[in-house]
Design a protein around this nucleic acid. Structure first.
Length: 466
RNA sequence: CGAGGCGUGGCUCAGCUUGGUAGAGCGCUGCGUUCGGGACGCAGAGGCCGCAGGUUCAAAUCCUGUCGCCUCGACCA
């Protein structure tokens, strides 16, 4: 892992049976283990969306070229990486259709049809789908050509309400990351050079990976009324004036699975936080040919399942050692070892994926298991927080930054004057480090921009990115 | 898009220099013995060597082209 992080990552992804490559670059098979992980993430997010008043819809896969081109900044941002459908059967199409790289234009067209009055607002829609972006280089989860995500698109009567929505949904992502995925985040606003194509402002949650690179794990955009004007999404307000709506969009993708792998994984493979692990407990019977072992293991499984846990018994005929290694590779948070000696003593062995074993009485085992899982969840968050803290540095000038970037990577916190020129300079001097975000949690690190020495406007996080 | 690496049973690879009957380990199937950290024995199955041309009596091997994959950079959720 330490020697070659990239190879470690690819190995884990393949050996943990998360993905299989397909014959099209950047389009991978999500195997049951990966898809179950995504379903668990989906379930949590979807419940949050519903709780905050959103409805799910489904937009078409295809976007006519003319529609994509309605908003200038948006099309400029995405045009280089869209794939085009040019033929229907053998007939060339009169207008080529792009496969959605994101669905702003489709939502906008639809909103222009259904929004008439202030009474129609807000529109709080979300869709779960896949999108296609013709990336040049790809890596499992981190950069696919086709990837699964959700994209929320909302329309509001006022900018204040839209901004409130933008930040509310960023909080939903931050909550998912920290409380379910055990990934601490830095929340903040993107600089102008890093914001989404067509947005007025972009907000992000940034996570720190084990190798010192940052992962943008979810984004939420405030669009102002730019799209509304380009797509004629107009409504009659209470004062009988025709006004454009104010919009937001926000998305989180299967990329987050890459983040989970790179946040928690270790040299034995994947480590999954219990809240989203497809399998929370694996029971490994030892000497299962001995009378009563398999039966007791199955009983234990039933008891844990009845307690609401995701559990399985590994009854395959592989050796126990092989099973231990296998389920560690797949990241199962807790293993229960159960052999004849245990059964005789009325106990079993609980082995945490994060290390450590303890003997627990079979009587009242479900509560003990739940307590262990909670403790593992908390331990993972603590560890990740420690990693984030350890990999966050403060710098006061460009030499500092270059030095920290070279030796340590991670996040660098500095003051910043707000100029793009300084961002470019940092990129040059550090071999590619970019601004990550202007954090909501601002600290006063002095009055001067660390890059140019000019008057500082804000604190900024920098980092190498995935 | 630049640089490098690689395409030979499911996987990892050998064979190619010097053309001549397609190999190994792991995995897989069956039976038996095992079982507290990747067990063992025996018996099996499985590949027109990425694809297309060419040279040759003969091509996994030589030549040309092409497609794809991986890694690292440049650009982007």
């Amino acid at each position: 892992m330490e020697e070659d992080f990239a190879k470690w990552y690819t190995d884990v992804v393949l050996k943990a049976e998360l993905v299989d490559y397909s014959s099209v670059k950047g389009c991978v098979v999500l195997r049951p283990h990966a898809y179950a992980l995504w379903e668990n993430i989906q379930a949590i997010l979807d419940a949050s969306f519903k709780r905050t008043g959103h409805e799910n819809v489904y937009m078409p896969l295809l976007i006519p070229e003319s529609l994509l081109q309605r908003e200038k900044d948006h099309v400029e941002g995405f045009a280089p990486e869209v794939a085009w459908v040019t033929h229907g059967g053998t007939e060339p199409l009169t207008e080529r259709l792009c496969i959605r790289p994101t669905s702003e234009t489709l939502f906008c067209e639809h909103y222009s049809h259904v929004v008439q009055s202030w009474r129609d607002l807000p529109k709080l829609y979300n869709q779960w789908c896949s999108v296609l972006r013709w990336e040049k280089s790809t890596r499992p989860f981190l950069r696919h050509r086709e990837f699964l995500w959700q994209e929320g698109h909302t329309a509001h009567a006022t900018p204040e309400e839209a901004m409130e929505e933008t930040l509310r949904m960023l909080d939903v992502y931050a909550d998912l990351a920290e409380n379910s995925l055990a990934m601490p985040v830095v929340k903040g606003k993107k600089t102008d050079s890093e914001k989404f194509a067509g947005a007025v402002s972009t907000y992000t949650i940034e996570c720190m990976m084990h190798d010192g690179k940052a992962l943008q794990s979810g984004t939420s955009h405030f669009f102002g009324d730019g799209f509304a004007k380009a797509f004629d999404i107009l409504f009659t307000d209470r004062d009988n004036q025709l006004k454009p709506v104010f919009q937001t969009s926000w998305g989180l993708s299967t990329r987050i699975i890459g983040g989970i792998i790179m946040t928690h994984g270790d040299n034995s493979g994947l480590v999954l936080p219990p809240r989203i692990a497809p399998l929370q407990v694996i029971i490994v019977p030892v000497a299962s040919h001995k009378p009563g072992v398999t039966e007791r293991a199955n009983l234990l499984e039933q008891e844990l399942r009845a307690a609401g846990l995701r559990v399985k018994t590994d009854n395959s005929d592989a050796s126990p050692g092989w099973k231990f290694a296998e389920h560690e590779m797949k990241g199962v948070p807790l293993r229960i070892e159960l052999g004849p000696r245990d059964i005789e003593a009325g106990q079993c062995v609980l082995a945490r994926r994060t290390g450590g074993k303890l003997v627990s009485p079979l009587d009242g085992i479900a509560d003990a298991v739940k307590a262990e899982l909670d403790s593992i969840q908390a331990e993972l968050l603590d560890r990740a927080r420690a990693n984030l803290a350890e990999k966050t540095s403060v710098a006061h000038d460009l030499d500092d930054m270059a030095c920290i970037a070279r030796e340590k990577g991670g996040f660098i916190k500095t003051m910043w004057c707000g100029s793009n020129a300084c961002e470019e300079l940092v990129k040059d001097k550090t071999g590619g480090m970019k601004s990550r975000c202007m954090p909501f949690d601002q600290e006063d690190l002095g009055g001067h921009c660390a890059v140019c020495g000019g008057k500082a406007e804000t604190m900024l996080y920098w980092g190498y990115q995935y």
